[in-house]
Amino acid sequence: MTKLKLGPLEDDKPVKLTTELPAAVFRDLRSDAEILTHSVGLMTRTEPAKLIAPMIERRMATDRAFAKARRNTLSSHLGHSVHDAGQETDATMDCR
């Protein structure tokens, strides 16, 4: 059987998440959506809930402490091993 270089693919199916926000945070989120709507000249109102995922993605993409901690966590779970011949084995990770 052929040994593939690509491991299992992550599930990219969106996950519905229900959460409660403090009223002040929701008011700010609603204001942010309104400002975004006007600043980019959209004709339809931006729903505040549509801003949450991009905000979280941006935070995780730019937070250096998070990136470092994630790299450390991932590298500790990979468990690469080296054969006697000096060839590295393929490693797959189960992210749950």
Rank of each mutant, 00 (worst) to 15 (best):
T37C: 13
P22Y: 05
K13W: 01
G41D: 07
L74D: 08
L29W: 02
M60K: 05
S31I: 03
S81A: 09
D32F: 08
A23V: 00
F66S: 02
M60V: 10
V25K: 03
L74M: 15
T92D: 13
A23S: 11
L78D: 08
H77K: 15
T92Y: 10
M93D: 08
T46F: 09
D32A: 05
E88Q: 13
E20V: 12
Q87S: 06
L9K: 11
E34I: 01
L51R: 03
P8W: 00
R58D: 07
K50P: 02
D12T: 15
H77F: 04
T19G: 04
R58M: 04
D11R: 10
A49Q: 11
H83P: 00
M60S: 01
T46E: 06
L36D: 00
H80P: 09
A49D: 08
A69K: 10
S31M: 12
D84G: 06
A85K: 09
D84P: 10
P22E: 10
M55A: 13
K3Q: 14
R59E: 01
P48K: 01
T62M: 09
D28K: 01
F66P: 00
M93W: 10
T37K: 14
S39I: 01
M60Y: 07
M93K: 05
S76C: 06
K16F: 11
T19V: 15
L17C: 14
P48W: 04
M43R: 15
T19K: 05
V15M: 11
D63S: 07
C95L: 13
L29V: 01
D12Q: 06
A91Y: 12
P8A: 04
K50C: 09
T2H: 07
H80W: 12
D90E: 13
D84H: 12
G86I: 01
I56P: 08
R45S: 14
P48A: 10
P22N: 10
I35S: 11
H77N: 06
L29Y: 06
V40Q: 13
A67L: 14
D28E: 11
K5M: 12
F66K: 00
D90R: 10
L21N: 01
V25N: 05
A85I: 02
K5G: 09
L17S: 02
L9W: 14
K16R: 14
F26W: 11
F66R: 02
R96Y: 01
E20T: 13
R27W: 00
T19D: 02
G79K: 08
D32N: 06
V40P: 00
E34C: 02
H80L: 07
T44A: 13
P48M: 08
R27D: 08
S76F: 04
E88S: 06
A24T: 00
K68T: 14
V82G: 01
E10N: 07
E57Q: 10
K13A: 13
A85F: 07
A33H: 03
V25Q: 12
I35P: 04
R71W: 05
I56N: 04
A23H: 01
K68E: 06
A85Y: 12
V15N: 09
R30W: 00
P14C: 11
A61V: 02
